[in-house]
């Protein structure tokens, strides 16, 4: 059951919406992964997105980042329509993401992974690379410094020269966040960043997410770990079978009856 009153309250608290999804739909074959999904994300907030597996959370991320186009509906970033733009242009505008199944470049070391993350904020092209002018050298040095600073922020600076595949799983997740931050995003989409982490690591991840938000970066967090999602999110959206089931503050969601039966209840019983 939907609660229309709660549905319409997104984006009313504070800043202008930086991300707006209007009636997005997407089907794969006969399966309707998303159906007429609409919501807004205000500047500087952390939006938690929850829902059972197959609810369409990752599909939604793929639509926002542009890995595939929506069948219907529109997506606005900073009031600019973006659903037709290629992925790399959206990254340049300020949308960064991480992947649920990790997508690090295993043929590069840790430092290079974060350096390549700055691709859209650096300029050296084919001829510049061959000529290797002072400007290019300077940019390369700055890129390296930035990458080391980001690695320091996530606590991996000592691992800079290791092959990225040699890092323990939890650190690989942090590296992927650092790589996403390297593009200096305005919106960061985190796809299940806590999955595979232990309790201690999850706690640190929560602190990191808050620290990122405090730099002014808006965050959309897809996460199955309820205590993490509830503790860091300003607002929460519940997706179920490709539709928005409910949205509201963490407190409202926790007391929302439809959500409890559809998702939280099941989730608790499984534990």
């Amino acid at each position: 059951m939907k609660d229309p009153e709660m549905l319409d309250r997104d984006g009313e608290d504070g800043g202008a919406p930086i991300l707006r999804i209007c009636g997005a739909s997407k089907a794969f074959g006969g399966v309707q992964a998303l159906e007429n999904v609409s919501f807004e994300v205000s500047q500087g907030m952390i939006l938690g997105m929850i829902g059972p597996n197959g609810a369409g959370k990752t599909t939604l991320f793929n639509l926002i980042s542009g890995l595939y186009p929506p069948d219907a509906g529109r997506i606005f970033f900073n009031e600019e329509e973006i659903q037709r733009l290629p992925t790399h242009q959206r990254v340049r505008m300020g949308i960064a993401r991480t992947f649920q199944n990790l997508a690090l470049f295993e043929n590069m070391n840790v430092l290079e992974n974060v350096m390549v993350g700055q691709h859209v904020r650096t300029r050296c092209g084919f001829w510049g690379a061959i000529a290797r002018t002072t400007g290019v050298r300077r940019e390369e040095a700055a890129c390296r410094e930035n990458a080391l600073a980001l690695l320091d922020m996530v606590g991996l600076v000592d691992q800079a020269l290791k092959p990225s595949a040699d890092l323990p799983f939890g650190w690989q997740r942090l590296l992927e966040i650092a790589r996403a931050l390297a593009s200096r995003p305005r919106v960061l989409l985190l796809d299940e960043p806590a999955s595979g982490l232990n309790a201690l690591e999850t706690g640190r991840l929560g602190d990191l997410i808050l620290a990122i938000r405090n730099q002014g970066i808006t965050i959309v967090l897809v996460e199955h770990d309820m205590s993490l999602t509830m503790s860091v999110s300003d607002r929460i959206i519940v997706l179920d079978q490709g539709r928005v089931l409910a949205s509201g503050t963490p407190e409202e969601i926790q007391t929302h009856s439809a959500v409890r039966t559809a998702y939280l209840g099941e989730h608790c019983e499984q534990r």
């Binding site: 990254v91 993401r97 043929n107 590069m108 390549v116 691709h119 859209v120 510049g128 290797r132």
Partner: peptide
């Protein structure tokens, strides 16, 4: 020089994972 530059890293990222390369821009 190509390999050790921004261009070289972009090329290697495509080898690593084309989707991930797109996702970092």
């Amino acid at each position: 020089r190509l390999i050790e530059s921004r261009v070289g890293r972009a090329l290697r990222s495509i080898h690593g994972s084309e989707h991930a390369a797109m996702a970092i821009g």
